[in-house]
Design a protein around this nucleic acid. Sequence first.
DNA 1: TTGAAAGCGCTAACAG
DNA 2: CTGTTAGCGCTTTCAA
Lengths: 328, 328
Amino acid sequence: MRDVAAAAGVSLKTVSRVVNGESFVRPDTAERVRDAIARLGFQRNDLARTLRGGGRTRSIGLIIEDVANPFYSQIARGVEDVARAGGRLVISGSSDEDPARELLLIRSLCERRVDGLLIVPSQTGDPRRRAELIAGTPAVFLDRPADDPAADTVLIDNLGGARTAVDHLLAHGHRRIACLVDLPEIFTARQRHQGYLEALAAHGVQADPALVRTGRHDVRGAGHAMTELLALPDPPTAVFAGNNLLTVGALRAIGAAGTRTALVGFDDVELADLLATPVTVIAHEPADMGRQAAELLEGRIRGDTGPPARILLPTRLVARGSGEIPPG
Amino acid sequence: MRDVAAAAGVSLKTVSRVVNGESFVRPDTAERVRDAIARLGFQRNDLARTLRGGGRTRSIGLIIEDVANPFYSQIARGVEDVARAGGRLVISGSSDEDPARELLLIRSLCERRVDGLLIVPSQTGDPRRRAELIAGTPAVFLDRPADDPAADTVLIDNLGGARTAVDHLLAHGHRRIACLVDLPEIFTARQRHQGYLEALAAHGVQADPALVRTGRHDVRGAGHAMTELLALPDPPTAVFAGNNLLTVGALRAIGAAGTRTALVGFDDVELADLLATPVTVIAHEPADMGRQAAELLEGRIRGDTGPPARILLPTRLVARGSGEIPPG
DNA sequence: TTGAAAGCGCTAACAG
DNA sequence: CTGTTAGCGCTTTCAA
């Protein structure tokens, strides 16, 4: 910028005025400055700008489990849309459910002075350490609650969704219903597991612990678990799969075993409608979760000082076939 | 930092030393400083640090078409893995194939002084404007070439993949093979279309223009096109779908029409193996493309000054069923 | 309408 | 081992 000023024969401040489109610059002066800018290929340094302005970096941080998981990438898209409208960029990072990695990301993002943080909190770490790092930066939690009751949070109705799924299977006559869920540390997994148990209890069906497989975190793990379940002496006639990855794993195992096992999955999955037996799911809108969280954050960044928001997003059962298969 | 220095009764520079883990600080002094840091909740300001150091922001920009499209989100994951290893964060943005949006993103990212740029270039804008903005920032192009022959580029073997797909259908006896491709401005779409034509020509099959539908950019558009094709007086017995979204659209239309139309799709899609008729695809590794591009960029950032790299990633045909359906 | 000076928060270079 | 000084590139404040 100094060079531009020299080239245009004006002061630093005048260049600054032109670059920022402030008024009170004579058109011909402005023209000369713009020429110099073009000639020198000058680009304003946003770091210096933000530093001096004491202002915003016009960026937000997004910490999710895995950018490549469609559930999270849809969230990311919703977040981006809102951030864009607010003139902000999104710096996203995958925590891979590793608390150390999460803390590292939070620290990096805060040190970069992002205007705010959107976090799907990993749940195996120490919540206080996280809270300490975040201190001062507006933050909204998605998909899972933070420990902090004062934090804005956007969740899905996990309990209700899971109950609906299992109710549906019970209504179709199933009594031996398996349950595949993620790591027990993860809030959504616990909620969905609980929803499963509650639905059974509400129908007076005795839960069989042998039919529950927790701690399945990927497609392969879910596949193995499902294969084992199907090999039981008294196998389940139906299964509730606790998320998109587990649904895929369960479907593969059922396909390989060649059984007519009913299935309802939590999260919608691409092509679910085109499978040999189209997949019944508990659907919801991840992009909407991202949008709502980002909007909440936007408000906080702008200085909103209302009470903590806690949004619960609805789910809906989409019956496509796999959930309507009758028992054996 | 000033406050920390005051609280600890030391100079600014000493605090800086402790924060940055430099040596030559007496343990008890360091301890006092660390106490003050913890008490005051101090966090180093990375903007100031980078500004003064004249150094890197330890971030890279990633511009793709849509974060939520699995093809791109897998790329993003590959990029992130390499960036992480290099201690960098990824700022990603969706251009939505809009050149204005792309330029805006490039400008924002350069003004923020990202260390480098990874770009899937939209192809409807002016390449010179893009080049001007990028000037000075290392950049690598993915999936599509930039106009610039001096630019590092990582591409998939679109031509070869498309030819393989159509060869496969021809080998199974098809002669009326439809072709669904994206907007003709897009490099990959043109290449895949050309591969289709070349395969037909190589087998001495006369191409029927009525069977080619270009300019399909989403699932719905592909669905409509496919429905029209199937309604022709002399419909195709097979179709080559030019990308993941078009494959999904075509599958939906074929499913709705209830025909036994053969299909080979470019890009692999989740659950393709579990469809009523499992989907034969031209598969490749998007994450690997992201990784390779990020590694190239990492090299440039570190000062690599070799000749421009141009990497062509292989594809492979995964025969699962839909590509092996014989003609009607 | 323009410019000079001060300073954002930090680190590099050089003293002590 | 610790402190002082200068300055990264910009904007803010005040003066001309």
